[in-house]
Design a protein around this nucleic acid. Sequence first.
DNA 1: CACCATTATTTAGTGCACTAACTGTTAGTG
DNA 2: CACTAACAGTTAGTGCACTAAATAATGGTG
Lengths: 152, 152
Amino acid sequence: MRQIDLGEDPLKLDRQVCFALSIASRSVIALYRPLLEPMGLTHPQYLVMLALWESSPRSVRDLCQALRAEPATLSPMLKRLEAIGYLTRRRNRSDERELVVELTAAGRALRQDAEKIPYRVVEELGMEVAELQELHAVLSRVIAATAKPAVE
Amino acid sequence: MRQIDLGEDPLKLDRQVCFALSIASRSVIALYRPLLEPMGLTHPQYLVMLALWESSPRSVRDLCQALRAEPATLSPMLKRLEAIGYLTRRRNRSDERELVVELTAAGRALRQDAEKIPYRVVEELGMEVAELQELHAVLSRVIAATAKPAVE
DNA sequence: CACCATTATTTAGTGCACTAACTGTTAGTG
DNA sequence: CACTAACAGTTAGTGCACTAAATAATGGTG
């Protein structure tokens, strides 16, 4: 067991990485909101669309893995996306347990509008792309660390 | 207008900083869950407690600023924390608009239990403290960038 | 082939975040 | 002092995240 030194007052709000993570996540999502609103999408729905633009007929299970989301979260989201006409939901004939999600023409067409979004977000953030890439790398390590099954 | 180069396929899910931010935030909060559960706290409630341990009788408005939260979010949260006996809510006599939130003895006592939490989280993450500090610094820059009132 | 564990998805219930609208209090202005 | 704008919190409604339980289909195994 190595010794961890967190300095004095490890409960100080402003030092909490978890607090900074929450705020940063909410703040960045807030940047997307006005950009996504014209498409009728929320940020989580936008992530679903990104996953579908990469591979279109795919199962809920597959989407859950790609998005690291619970099926219980995706289930109602997919219904909303179906309701606004961006995708279809149907059972897999060869395995009726599986729900196959597929983009509609409208869903595919949306990609054109979406392509400008990353540039606009980076622009509004006003940070260097290199710094964002570094942030992404650190976040990936955090995600990998939390995904670990607590190896001794 | 400087040119932004996001490489090819800027819509690739795995490259999205916003996606990594969401997952990292949720994953880290998930680390706290089993540690907070014995105290009957959720992670957002834990942040409220951190804010109150720093300064105890304080207004909702003040808490909102410290936590970067909406009053509409804090209002029901504070009622829940009052219901489980960690704080009291009362109006300020000299300004009846203001709600004064104050820790109870139980709320103050909880701090002792909470003090081990940061160490356990860092331990479970298995990352260097230095790297976490660097992450905190980058996140702070992101937060500052999003807080900017879009200066020309 | 019946039984049973596994798998894929859905439903229900709690809590948080966001927006907009509402209530009540205070402070300024004519 | 009456009027009104600003301020502090609350309420209502939508959507997401998490847990646990339910439903339905599939794949062994005896």
